[in-house]
Amino acid sequence: MVKVVLWGSVRAAAGGAETVEVEAKNVRQILDRIGELHPGFKDRYDEGVTVSIDGQIYVDDWFQPVTEDSEVYLLPYLEGG
């Protein structure tokens, strides 16, 4: 199981859960599992989601691998100036 911390707008989209534990080997599987738990979540991540894995930030990158030891945060979609 991978522990995923949800923050910002992502948390609201996933029904307010602070963390979820899911069986997943990559980012897409994490998103799919959360989507199964929280139907409203799918629309949100279709708009884009940022994932931090072990401190490294990935934007819309489905196949980044994760393991049980990974530190995973789902963050709001980042936009810059």
Partner: peptide
């Protein structure tokens, strides 16, 4: 000051 390995205020550990 935040350094490598510290948890950031927004969650992830800083590289």
């Amino acid at each position: 000051a935040a350094e490598e390995g510290d948890q950031s205020s927004f969650g992830p550990t800083f590289p």
